[in-house]
Design a protein around this nucleic acid. Structure first.
Length: 126
RNA sequence: CCAGCGGGCCGGGUGGCCGCCCCCGGCGACGGGGGAGGAAAGUCCGAACUCCACAGGGCAGGGUGCCGGCUAACGGCCGGGCGCUGCGAAGCGACGGAAAGUGCCACAGAAACAUACCGCCCGCCUCGGCGGGUAAGGGCGAAAUGGUGCGGUAAGAGCGCACCGGCGUCGUGGGGACACGGCGGCCGGGCAAACCCCACCCGGAGCAAGGCCAUAUAGGGGACCGCGUCCGCAAGGACUCAGGACGGCCCGUCCGAGCGUCCCGGGUUGGCCGCUCGAGCUGCGGGGCGACUCGCAGCCCAGAUAGAUGGCCACCGCCCGCAAGGGUACAGAAUUCGGCUUACAGGCCCGCUGGCACU
RNA sequence: CGGGGUGUAGCUCAGCCAGGCUAGAGUGCACGGUUCGGGACCGUGAGGUCGGCAGUUCAAAUCUGCCCACCCCGA
C-alpha cells in the first residue's frame, strides 16, 4: 500500500476518531470518515494491548495486505484498530473480519451509496 | 562411553503469485542494485557529533577503587596477584584505608571496648563473707583478648620456648600488585554497599541536538520591578549597589540602570538538511601470551518517520503425537559507534578435566 | 532522548532516610455479645514470598546491584 494511500497525520487520526462512523467486532474496530479527496486512505492502529513491537507490526502488515485486497469507494479515511485477540488471529480471519466491517459500513465498491463520496465515483486504485 | 568445564558459531531452506521503502539510469513505460538483530531490547556506562557556557581558584555534588596493559573513551576487555569454592578442567570476588576522627553493634550476657557472674588460687576473719590475683575452664552471644603443644606458676597468663596465623622491620626477586627469607615481638574486635579519609576522573544539555524554508489573531496581547546620587559644559568617571551573566554555592570577574522578568497566545508535533563512508567490513601478511595493533589489497553493506524491509500458498528440514494434526526460540533498526546487562526452541565446531572399560 | 516516583493484609496507607523491637493502622472478613430482628456499638480472631533474584552484614521491608510491573514529568 503506497504512502499516499495511508493516513500519516495525527490530525487525520484525530478527525476519524472524532467524526467517523464506527463498526466493530471481536477482532477489529473500523472508523470511516469522508476526507473530501479522491483517494481512500487507510490507517492502522495496534496498541500495546496487542503485544510487543514484533506482533504489533505483524498485525498491521496483515491488515494492510487485507485492506489492499478489498476494493473500496474513493474519498474516504478509514482507521482500522486491532483488538487484543487480533494478535493470535490468522490472516484469513482478519481479512474476513475487515470485509464484514467495511461491508457493514457500506464502503465497499459494489455497495450502494451509504456514505456519499465528495468526488465523482472514481476509478479503482490498484 | 558417561559426567562435566571453557571458548567460538548458526539460529530455517527452496519455489510461485501479489506488494512496500531507498539509491542509480530513463521524458516515460520500465530496467538494475540494496533492504532488521545477536541481542536491533533494557537504556546501565563510555564516546563521536551539535548547540550553549567558559580568566581563574575553592567548596559542594557525582563516579571509579588490588597491579600492569589495551583503547578515542569507559564502570569495558586482556594478562597477572591475592582470597574463596571445586577431586579437577575451571568458576566467583564493590579486592584502597578501621594505630585521622565521629557513629553504630539489638536481645542475651558480669562485661561489646572497657570489663571478674560462676569458677580457680592466695590472704584475713565473728565459717560465711571480705580484700587481692587470674581470661586455663563454665555460661551468654554473630562476635569475649591469636591457635596447638611443652615448660612454668600459689593459681594463671606469650610469662618463656617450638610450629602456625597476624603485625612491624630489614633483605632478596619482580615494572607493580605481591612473593620468599631473616630479625623483633605479642602489639587486642566488627561494620566504611554508616558518615568519612585517600588517590584518580567528571562543564551543561541532547538529533524533539542544531540549521534552512514555509505558515502565523506576528516585529501579538497583558501584568510587574526599576529608570538613583555625586563630579563634569560634554565625552566620561566615581559612589551606591537594585538587578543580570559565569551548570549549583562562595571568592572573584564581567555587564549594568538596562530594555529586564513573568503570564497568555502562536510555533517546536508542516517540508528539507542533519542521515548514513564509519574509531567501517572482508582477506592476506607482520608484531604481541593476550586484549589489541600496523601494513597492503578489495568492498559499499537499511535509512523509514502512524514509521518500508512484507502478505499468502506449496514442498523440504526440525520438534510433539499411534494418527488426524499442531508447533517451529527470543525478538523489529529510529543520529552513529564501543561495551555492559537481560531474553532465547534447537543445533554445530574446537580445546580441556574427572571416571569406567578395552588395546 | 532524558528525569522522577510507586510496589507492604482483600482494599487504602504507615514503617525504610539513621538495619535488630510481635511488620502496624483504618476499612473489609469470620466468630461471640448487645437487639424481637437488622444496622450501629463492644469484644475476640484469622489474614503478609514486604514486586522478584543476587549481594553486604551476626542480622535486610529497611543498605547496594540487576531485573519486572505500573504511574508521572520535561525536551
Amino acid at each position: 500500500m503506497r504512502r499516499e494511500q495511508r493516513l500519516r497525520r495525527r490530525k487525520d487520526f484525530a478527525a476519524a476518531y472524532r467524526q467517523g462512523k464506527t463498526q466493530g467486532n471481536r477482532l477489529l474496530v473500523v472508523r470511516v470518515r469522508p476526507n473530501g479527496g479522491e483517494t481512500t486512505r487507510f490507517g492502522f492502529v495496534a496498541g500495546k494491548v496487542v503485544g510487543g513491537a514484533v506482533t504489533r507490526n505483524l498485525v498491521k502488515r496483515r491488515l494492510r495486505a487485507a485492506a489492499r485486497a478489498l476494493a473500496t469507494k474513493p474519498g474516504l479515511d478509514i482507521v482500522v484498530g486491532a483488538r487484543k485477540v487480533a494478535a493470535v488471529a490468522e490472516y484469513r480471519a482478519l481479512e474476513r473480519a475487515l470485509a464484514v466491517l467495511l461491508k457493514r459500513a457500506g464502503v465497499l465498491a459494489d455497495d450502494g451509496p451509504a456514505v456519499p463520496p465528495e468526488g465523482p465515483p472514481g476509478k479503482e486504485h490498484h
